[in-house]
Nucleic acid binder design. Structure first.
Length: 460
RNA sequence: GUGGGUAUAGCUCAGCUGGUAGAGCGCCGCCUUGUGGUGGCGGAUGUCGCGGGUUCGAGUCCCGUUACUCACCCCA
């Protein structure tokens, strides 16, 4: 059988890379829980009618069918979920009687989209979502809360002592603001205007202005005003004055300005040198179901990859006809952030196995002695393994080195026949006597860490 | 779904207008008779994506096909 080739869009990681992904997921989970969000997992499949509610994405759904299913029978029609919001909405309706509202949950799972893969775009990938959902109403301060939680998570991911990812820029806008602005200008087709303005990062401003006139019924002056609004971006609430200076007034605009200003003021204290938040009035987010706050996030140095973390406020994502459940949430593309960095070799794990120590093996007969050392270390929470064969010590050291295991433990015997123990740090060659019941590695060495191979050549 | 590019060793790639395959890195062994990394010497490895055609002869030319990849659409 010939060697299998990779399946495009279904990324798989090597063990050392997986270390990074798990550290990222651990960090996200810890942060979300620190903010009191409950974790849930939903099934991988949803009925097709649920999945198709989102409209355009329907073509991307992977439909599930049993190989042996008889075509005659009408199949129930289920497909793999393509995001975590639709399953969550369904979960909320299904369990509404058992949940407490406002319900705050996080969810980190695989999702599937039948798109054409590209750098940072996959057909199977991991998303990390947080949402807050209310019954009938959901106060605006939850928009601020969700922003702060994700900002906190991103800050940890970018912190050099945690994961050390490149920096992030969280861009926030508010649909009420832009819709109110367009209405105040006298434009009627606000959705179309929004859709066209959203193309600003792809098309030049003049082109968008032409489209606004041609397709959205705007006058050149109105188009100009729309573009002026979209150029406003500030890291504090000073955008309010800039918008006011454009001389447009509308009730919805005021509401949006107030909300966005509140959000930026509330979240700004969490920003640092790695993670910034900016009010960016060009962000609109396609059409979708967003009704207020909208988010996008760029990864520093990878701006062309698009948004890696998006979301917003939706006033009616879930409804059972009687009760409406408004929500606000953000979704982080774990795979989108990580896979390009891992495949380019920007980041990887410090080792391909959890082991801190390789216990060397003198000969097969003494395997029990080596096993005993390993068990003594494990009893104290130190991950380790025993050498697979009693090869020359040089080979056993190489075995450890290949896997990034920092220590090799040698078990010997003194003249009186008593066991002797030495542990060698193979990075600096330092070898010292050690007691299996007491020796402890540094906390940095205890677990695999994230390293940047390109900048790592400084030590040793 | 639309359009372009690519497919040769484990990896990155070379192979000029057709003459039955090569480099670097990696891997294995020895120098080094039980403590790796550097250095020296030696060694192994390919259905040249798959199928067909042209030809005395195809990695090379032609057709088809599959996969990968980039851009568009859309999005995490």
């Amino acid at each position: 059988m010939s060697k299998p080739t990779p399946l495009s869009g279904f990324p798989e990681l090597l063990p050392a890379q997986r270390v990074v992904e798990q550290l990222v997921v651990d960090t996200l989970r810890r942060t979300f829980e620190l903010h009191g969000f409950a974790g849930i997992e939903t099934r991988a499949v949803e009925p097709m009618d649920q999945l198709l509610r989102k409209g355009d994405t329907s073509k991307e759904v992977y439909v599930l069918r049993r190989l042996q299913a008889d075509d005659a029978g009408s199949d129930a029609g289920i497909g793999l979920h393509f995001d975590l919001t639709v399953p969550f909405a369904r979960y909320v309706l299904e369990n509404a009687g058992k949940l407490e509202f406002p319900f705050r949950r996080y969810q980190i799972q695989k999702v599937w989209r039948g798109e054409r893969p590209q750098d940072g775009r996959y057909r199977e990938f991991t998303q990390a979502d947080i949402d807050v959902i209310g019954r009938d109403t959901l106060p605006f301060h939850h928009d601020v809360e969700v922003t702060k939680v994700m900002l906190d998570a991103l800050r940890r991911l970018a912190h050099p002592d945690v994961i050390g990812l490149p920096g992030f820029r969280l861009q926030v806008n508010n649909r009420k603001l832009i819709q109110g602005f367009y209405l105040g200008l006298g434009l009627s087709d606000v959705d179309e205007v929004m859709r066209l303005v959203d193309k600003l990062d792809k098309l030049p401003a003049e082109k968008v202005a032409e489209l606004l006139v041609a397709e959205a019924g705007a006058t050149p002056a109105q188009a100009e005003a729309c573009l002026r609004l979209a150029t406003i971006r500030t890291d504090d609430d000073s955008f309010v004055d800039q918008v006011r200076a454009l001389g447009v007034s509308h009730e919805l605009l005021d509401e949006g300005l107030e909300e966005l200003a509140t959000l930026v003021r509330g979240a700004a204290p969490l920003a640092d040198e790695h993670v910034r938040i900016t009010a960016d009035l060009s962000i609109a987010r396609g059409l979708d179901y967003y009704t207020g706050t909208v988010f996008e996030t760029r990864l520093d140095g990878y701006e062309s990859m698009g948004s890696i973390c998006s979301g917003g406020r939706y006033d009616a994502l879930a409804s059972d006809g009687r009760t409406t459940y408004p929500g606000v949430g953000i979704s982080l593309g774990v795979s989108r952030v990580l896979v390009p960095l891992l495949s380019r070799g920007v980041l990887t794990g410090s080792r391909s196995v959890p082991s801190v120590v390789l216990v060397a093996l003198t000969d097969e007969a003494s395997r029990p002695a080596s096993d005993a050392v390993a068990d003594a270390l494990r009893a104290r929470g130190i991950a380790c393994e025993v050498a697979p064969t009693a090869a020359k010590f040089g080979k056993q050291i190489k075995h450890a080195d290949r896997r990034g295991i920092p220590f090799v433990w040698f078990v010997g015997t003194d003249e009186q026949g008593a066991p002797t123990h030495q542990v060698k740090d193979i990075r600096d060659g330092n070898q010292v006597d050690a007691d299996p019941a007491a020796w402890t590695p540094s906390t940095d060495d205890l677990r695999p860490q994230v390293v940047s191979p390109t900048t790592e050549e400084t030590s040793s």
